[in-house]
Design a protein around this nucleic acid. Sequence first.
DNA 1: GTTAGCCTTGAAGTTGACTTCAAAGTCAAA
DNA 2: TTTGACTTTGAAGTCAACTTCAAGGCTAAC
Lengths: 148, 148
Amino acid sequence: MINARNDGAAFRPMSIGELARKTGVSADKLRYYEREGLLPRPRRGSSGYREYGAEAAGQVHFILRAKELGFSLEEIADLLNLSADAESGVAGVKARASRRLAEIEGQIARLENIRVRLASLVAACPGHGPLECCPILSAIRDGEGKRF
Amino acid sequence: MINARNDGAAFRPMSIGELARKTGVSADKLRYYEREGLLPRPRRGSSGYREYGAEAAGQVHFILRAKELGFSLEEIADLLNLSADAESGVAGVKARASRRLAEIEGQIARLENIRVRLASLVAACPGHGPLECCPILSAIRDGEGKRF
DNA sequence: GTTAGCCTTGAAGTTGACTTCAAAGTCAAA
DNA sequence: TTTGACTTTGAAGTCAACTTCAAGGCTAAC
């Protein structure tokens, strides 16, 4: 091999600031996730500084993707535990994801109900004139059934 | 007039507990809404107890209905201010409601996106077998594009 | 007259996901 | 060597919408 520089350590460890820049997650947040058990505690250099290996960014991205799917930090910690527990884990993961899905469907249904009601009030409001004629205010004051 | 009992005060004032029972809102919450400026401060009896008139229940219901439409307490206080401000108020109310509607539409769109992704992951997961084959975990770990 | 249940206040606690702070130590470049 | 950027920790602060608490005063029923 010509390139002798590849000998020894392939990765220089990352500081928390480097990991923060790499993942777009602030150093404070990374420390917070570590405290909450979402990230493994990395080894420390002689100064006490955290030293992250190459796998760290992937662990952070796991958290970000799970958050994107609407999981809370507590649920993410739970998923991480399950995914450490071979064989019995898959059923648990699917159950958690199904529960999350049901919650999201419920949230959507509630918001959809609000959206429809609010949209019809906004459409009915002329945007000017005396307050007594504002259908939005009337609906809030007296209930929607009374005027519509 | 035959019925002499109708003389004088038509309504005996309500205590905070009575108003709470009537509206289903706890007395603590009523005091909290008052502190936050959502309810007018009622007059007090000689004991210092709050005394509510007949209009109080309607004011509480206004708050409940606005909350149901997804307004925050701060936005409700804002609506109440607008609805005190004759003539210029209607445009403001419509603008607040439109803004709220847009926020709700955004929330629904985000949740819908999550719902679709999570549903396809749940559908693809067999619910048993080795963790390496769980599409939910894979998607969170590596991103959805990689496996699907 | 006593007791149970109501009412008063200001202050502090709750939840989740952070953010900010203070005080000190460390590292890298000029 | 000095500066400035980075890192360490634990603790406290933030937001919204409440809830709970403590310590005392009031009222209604028996």
